[in-house]
Every structure is written in structure tokens, then in C-alpha cells.
């Protein structure tokens, strides 16, 4: 079969299977990135304003996650995550369940993303000029509204480049889920390649798909950053 036939949508082409893998990768990346953001917001505020115990725990979390290679973390977290849920279920007298690779993938990658997001957001919050927050406090704005309407939009411009990086890392880290047997893009590609022996065709195709995600993401984040920077005087060299 020629390269194009191999990539055809219908069987015996692998196009549909690759697209399904791509979709799963993107969805997991989206889920992990969102979970990472939530953890990051909590983590950043905890590190900045939390008590000593909170801060120590968060320091342990971000240090470990950032020190250990992602592949190892994913293996550890994946098996720890699935087996601890099952242990809990057994302890409460329920049946063991098969945890979906999708949910586990999001949880595991989300925990990894969360550590990096904590640092990105902590730096961004610190970059908000104190006077901007003080002005809102002086006018009687309640703390949650202040965080949402002043701190958040102000820190966004500083956070976007870091967050864009995290998102790209999230899309690529989904490939690591192949090691735990989850049929995302990379695993599907490997299956296709080993079945047909057309390694070059399939890995090129997968590479191009990852590249497309990256280019599209860069465009979208560029838009968001331009919006977040509204009101700022353009710095030279930007």
C-alpha cells in the first residue's frame, strides 16, 4: 500500500484511528491543563498567603513533581492512582472497577501540570503592582471579587507565556500515556506502524499532527495575550 492509502480514513487505512487518537490526546491535554490550572491557582495562593504547613506541603509537591522525570511520575501516579482508588473501594466493600484511562490520564497529567502552574501563577500574582490591589481594597471591594476582577486580569498578561508553554507540554505529555497502554495518538501510531511496517509514514504523520496542534495553540495564545495586554504600553522589542 502507498503512504496515502495507509493514511486513508476507511480501513484498511489508519486515518480514522489516528484521528480518534488525536482527539483523545487533545481532550486529555485540555482536561489536564484545566485541572492543572485549578491546582495552580490554589497552589499559588497557598504558597503566597497560606500558613507555614500549607506552604511546606506545597513546596514538597512542586519540588518533587518538577524534579522527577515525567515518565516516571506518570508510571508512579498512574498505578498509585488506580490502585489506591480500588483499595478504597474494596475497603468500603465495593467491587473493584476498571478506571478509564481517560480519567486517569487527566488526573495524572493534571497533577504534574499543577506543580508547574503553581509556580507560573505565583510569579504572575507577585507581578501585579501592589497599588492596584490597594486601590480596590480602599474602595471596599470584597476579597474574592478583588481576586477575580483585579488580580486575575492583571496577572494574566504575565502568566500567559508560561501557561502557553504548559499547554504545549500537556499536549506532548499525553504521548507518555502510551506507556500505560492508553490509546492516544502515539500509541495508535505505534500500532499502525508495527502492523504495516510503514514506520516512517506513520511517525511523520503523527509528528505533523502534533505540530499542527502546536501552531494552532500558539495562534490562540497569541490572541489571548494581546487581549490580556490591553492597556499596556508596548515595550520595545515586542
Amino acid at each position: 500500500m502507498s503512504g496515502l492509502e495507509l493514511l486513508a480514513w476507511e480501513a484498511p487505512g489508519w486515518g480514522a484511528a489516528l484521528a480518534a487518537g488525536l482527539l483523545k490526546s487533545v481532550l486529555i491535554a485540555l482536561g489536564a491543563f484545566s485541572l492543572g490550572l485549578l491546582i495552580g491557582i490554589g497552589g499559588a495562593y497557598g504558597k503566597l498567603y497560606g500558613g507555614p504547613v500549607t506552604r511546606d506541603l506545597l513546596a514538597v509537591y512542586t519540588t518533587i513533581v518538577r524534579a522527577v522525570p515525567e515518565l516516571i511520575l506518570i508510571l508512579i501516579l498512574y498505578f498509585a492512582f488506580t490502585s489506591s482508588i480500588n483499595n478504597l473501594l474494596l475497603a468500603w466493600g465495593f467491587e473493584r472497577i476498571q478506571i478509564s484511562g481517560f480519567v486517569a490520564g487527566i488526573a495524572v497529567l493534571g497533577v504534574v501540570q499543577g506543580a508547574y502552574a503553581t509556580e507560573v501563577l505565583r510569579g504572575a500574582i507577585l507581578s501585579v503592582p501592589a497599588g492596584q490591589i490597594e486601590a480596590a481594597r480602599a474602595m471596599g471591594m470584597p476579597p474574592l471579587m478583588l481576586a477575580w476582577r483585579v488580580t486575575f486580569p492583571q496577572m494574566l498578561a504575565a502568566a500567559i507565556p508560561g501557561l502557553a508553554n504548559l499547554w504545549l507540554i500537556a499536549t506532548k505529555d499525553t504521548a507518555l500515556l502510551a506507556v500505560v497502554g492508553y490509546a492516544e495518538l502515539t500509541l495508535v501510531t505505534r500500532q499502525a506502524a508495527s502492523t504495516t511496517k510503514a514506520f516512517f509514514t506513520f511517525f511523520m504523520a503523527a509528528g505533523l499532527l502534533y505540530l499542527c496542534i502546536s501552531i494552532l495553540s500558539t495562534l490562540i495564545f497569541g490572541r489571548i495575550e494581546a487581549w490580556a495586554r490591553r492597556g499596556q504600553v508596548r515595550q520595545e522589542g515586542r
Binding site: 503592582p129 486601590a135 480602599a138 474602595m139 471596599g140 492583571q154
Partner: peptide, 24 residues
């Protein structure tokens, strides 16, 4: 805290460094 917020609303503060919100 609620009382402080309410009283702050009745006191208009002007700072040396203006402190307008730059994103608005």
C-alpha cells in the same frame, strides 16, 4: 470585615501613585 468594606465605600482614597487599574 463587612463593616470595614462598607465604611471604606464612604471614603474616597487618592494615592500618590494614582493606582488606576491599567487593564480598564
Amino acid at each position: 470585615r463587612k463593616q470595614i468594606e462598607r465604611l471604606r465605600q464612604s471614603l474616597g482614597m487618592v494615592f500618590q501613585s494614582f493606582n488606576l487599574w491599567t487593564h480598564r
